[in-house]
Write a protein that binds this DNA or RNA. Structure first.
Lengths: 182, 182
DNA sequence: GGAAAAGTAGAGTGATCGCTCTACTTTTAC
DNA sequence: GTAAAAGTAGAGCGATCACTCTACTTTTCC
């Protein structure tokens, strides 16, 4: 792993646990354990540091999602199950991407990274549905699963992970059953 | 309407359209068209201004939700329909409450307002379900509708309001039909 | 072995921002 | 009518913050 990637990883962990607003560049420098000059060499502005952290998480989350059962409803539900695991294992401060966007609503670059990440996530459901029900129109279903994914992320902070996970899985299974995917 | 409420209304509109981070106290003062001294008299810190704006929107949203068809599935779906209207009419910058929380993750007072607002929203679904299906266990269903509500809010920014609205309504109707609520 | 690249430490700078304060005017209430 | 309350205008303060710069050391690579 090169220096830039290692710093990006530290930045991601730092932003995820303490949020964006509460942390200045000096604090980030400390977490990454590099000099200010090196930090700025790889990430020439605070915004670039945030983008680097988001891109790092984007890659990590894609890896986290991969795999699971090869067929049937369980194949489609796998990303939701994994999100449930994720929410249980990492500090639950909501969606890192949406939090970043909230902090920099005018940044075109950050908005692009966020939309890109979410589009890839929505595609994940489309691909898995196409694999399980080839030829079938599953557009609505993919959207529904994406809505439940986003809802679960936020609801876990508000009402507890268990409640959000149970409700999302229950609703997702019902939606798949209604489309004869079992 | 007294001065404080009028200022709170201006603050809400201001935060909603330009976000939290991008706007300092001087800009807020300008939007509310009052002197700095008066602004601080009613809201003694920037955090208090944010809380005031959130409380104002909480009340406005409760009023916005009220009413709708008196019975059947349409009674339960009414809040989702209204959210669809809301997303079409106001600048869609995501959920004001979650954005505020993202900006001040350590503020106990802000977290309390956010959780309070969301709890009231979840209760809205529970109450409407209890009205339509008295005696029936609709806990899961209420959670599902809440997830779809939260998911719709975010997905509307990411994929467009129409897609998010269609998907959420479709999923919600299916969930109600599965519980024999029509 | 030596030059270039990449790193460290940390002081300094300019701008911004939340908030206070002074001096003055208008409105409200009895 | 008058006193208290509430408002305006806006300069100024202290702190913070993103970012730069100087001086020096270590690592890499042919």
């Amino acid at each position: 792993m090169n220096t830039k990637q290692r710093i990006a990883s530290d930045l991601e962990r730092s932003f995820a646990s303490l949020g964006f607003a509460e942390q200045g560049v000096e604090a980030l420098r400390g977490q990454a354990d590099v000099s200010l000059r090196t930090l700025y060499k790889h990430f020439p502005s605070r915004e670039a540091m945030i983008i680097g952290a988001l891109q790092h998480r984007d890659a990590a989350y894609a890896e986290w999602l991969a795999g699971g059962p090869a067929d049937g409803a369980a194949h489609v539900l796998h990303p939701l199950v994994r999100l449930g695991d994720w929410l249980g294992e990492v500090a639950n401060t909501g969606c890192l991407f949406l939090n970043a966007w909230a902090e920099y609503p005018d940044s075109v670059a950050i908005a692009a990274v966020v939309k890109d990440h979410k589009a890839r996530l929505a595609d994940e459901f489309r691909l898995r549905l196409a694999h399980v029900a080839p030829g079938q129109d599953t557009g609505h279903l993919a959207e529904t699963l994406f809505l439940l994914h986003e809802g679960m992320t936020q609801a876990a902070r508000l009402q507890g992970r268990e409640i959000a996970y149970e409700a999302a899985m229950h609703a997702a299974r019902a939606a798949l059953a209604a489309a004869n995917i079992r």
